[in-house]
Amino acid sequence: MALTLTRSSSRLRGSSAYSYSRPRRSITLTVLLGFLLIYSVLPLTWLLFGITKDQPDLISSFGLWFGEDFSLFDNLAEVFTYDGGIFTRWFLNTIVYVVVGAGGATLLATAGGYGLAKFRFRGRNAVFAVVLGAIAVPGTALAVPTFLLFSQLGLTNTMWAIILPSLVSPFGLYLMWVFAAEAVPTELLEAARVDGASELRTFFTISLRLLVPGIVTVALFAIVATWNNYFLPLIMLNDPNLFPLTLGLYRWLADASGVGAQPVFHLVITGAFLTIVPIVITFLVLQRYWQSGLSAGSVKQ
């Protein structure tokens, strides 16, 4: 993968349009892309109307408008109280998985990427090959053996079963590697070395600050991956008290079947909405950072 980096260009340019000319805005193009925008937000709009409906309205009223009753507040209250308020528990679990799992993944990837980019040591080439290979290995293909291995280690049905696999993000490592290579000037490190600063100290006092956009970007990818994780919890967990939101919602959907069925589709919808909100807010808040981090760290000829 022949990759080089231009870290600075985007930052210097900011997000403004090209300076060589200010292109005229095109109505045609806007309308054309507008269709794509509608496609993107249509299901979310459907969801927004869905959360205002009770069960009967949900299955009888038009999807893109309100139902007979406005049940948003009832739904919200019910989501948080249904089944002993387990939704809150799922929410907190997800937070734990994200903070520890995605947070750990970011730390490991940052340190690792930095180490690979800025140091020469024996086996570095091997790490490069193995990690790149790992990106191509389907994560879910590993799920079954991981389950078996973890079950022998007594880790299944514990939070570790979700956290440990989340700690490794080969793509994050790669992103950070490429980013750090450009973002941290080698001369700066050498100057610090001449001054007698330890590598760790240099990392914390000098390099870390320069790596922030990359870290935020890696963190966001890790957060999304952890927040959306479904397959791994599905096979690893059987105690509902350990579920993340995704698996919990699926459980509620599955509750509608069989002897003793309790269909709660309206709660599934409201719960789905509540699952999306925090992650969307995270994206919006951190927008400034990750966009520069991504363009800086992104692959380019």
Binding site: L107, G112, G115, L116, K118, F119, F121, L164, L200
Partner: peptide, 14 residues
């Protein structure tokens, strides 16, 4: 050594 040190935690988890 320092370089290897930075990469080691990732490699262990990996």
């Amino acid at each position: 050594r320092a370089g290897a040190g930075f990469v080691t935690p990732f490699l262990i988890a990996f």
